[in-house]
Computed example of a mutant assay.
Amino acid sequence: MMTNLFSIFDPSTNLLNMPLNWLSTLLGIMFIPYSFWLIPNRHFMIWNLIIKKLHLEFKNLMGPNKSNGSTFIFISIFSFVLFNNFLGLFPYIFTSTSHLTISLSITLSLWLSFMFYGWINNSNHMFIHMIPQGTPSILMPFMVIIETISNIIRPGTLAIRLTANMIAGHLLMTLLSSTGNSMNMYFVMILIIMQILLLTLESAVAVIQSYVIAILSTLYSNEVN
């Protein structure tokens, strides 16, 4: 059994003696048929509007030379990360995006696919991208090293940004809630208001981090062409 909220960050814990933690990542599949056979409601109208706006924004970032449908992978990443971020706001539910197992798997696979595609099909462009325009000749070797290092750490920075932001808010809410037993009624009311505000902030962070990882992935893919 999970004994405290800190156990939601431990993938080795179990619920009712069943290791069901990672299954929370797959709960979004249950909502997919719902959008096809039920009459569209306000929820899905708003979601479709968000998807269309994201498609237009990603398409503008990627340029007119991209093939149709190339933005769908980034919209899928946004949807997947957003769903798991929001799912982690519920008590005693395993927050999968707070672990590098999930976040690094997403970012590293995307980065490797971009690198393989760029170096195989556009190797000259990849070499040119290592040296910014107008760099003095004496600084070119150093710029190649700096650009190479900055390129290699991209999947790590994307994954750590998502993981750190998900963990930080959850831990802050947990630490504040653990002090409620030793407070009187007035401080408990103030604590509840603070928790509601923090929960609102975490909801905004969940959306922002999903948007950031999708936008940065789009920009990284645009650099290999």
Rank of each mutant, 00 (worst) to 15 (best):
S217K: 08
N222V: 09
M183V: 15
E223H: 03
L20D: 09
W22I: 10
K59P: 03
L112F: 13
L104P: 13
S109M: 08
N122F: 08
L162W: 02
F72P: 04
L216Q: 07
N225V: 11
S137D: 14
S76W: 13
I149R: 03
H55C: 06
F6T: 08
Q195M: 10
H129P: 00
L191G: 07
S221M: 15
S210W: 04
Y117H: 12
T95D: 12
N17C: 03
I131K: 00
P64G: 13
L27P: 06
M140C: 05
M30H: 00
S177C: 04
F58D: 03
M143I: 14
I93N: 01
V188S: 02
M166K: 00
L56W: 14
F127D: 13
V81R: 00
D10L: 02
S210G: 12
N222R: 04
T157G: 06
Q133L: 13
L175Q: 09
S113A: 15
H99G: 04
Q209A: 10
P155L: 02
L112M: 14
S7M: 12
G134H: 06
A159V: 05
A168K: 06
N41T: 11
I190P: 01
T101M: 05
H170C: 01
F187C: 02
N48C: 08
L172C: 03
I152F: 07
T107F: 04
P33S: 04
I131E: 01
S113P: 09
L172F: 02
S76I: 15
M30T: 05
L89V: 07
P132I: 12
M1C: 09
I192S: 05
D10P: 00
S67W: 09
H170Q: 05
M30C: 04
N14M: 14
I102N: 00
S221Y: 14
M173E: 06
N165Q: 13
M130V: 12
N65V: 12
N84Q: 15
M140K: 07
Y211E: 11
L110K: 00
A206E: 00
T95V: 14
F114G: 00
P11E: 03
T101F: 09
Y211D: 13
W22K: 01
I73V: 10
I167M: 06
L104Q: 11
I213V: 15
L104T: 12
I120D: 10
L162A: 03
N85G: 10
S177W: 03
L20S: 10
N84Y: 08
I196N: 03
S96W: 00
I93H: 01
L20R: 05
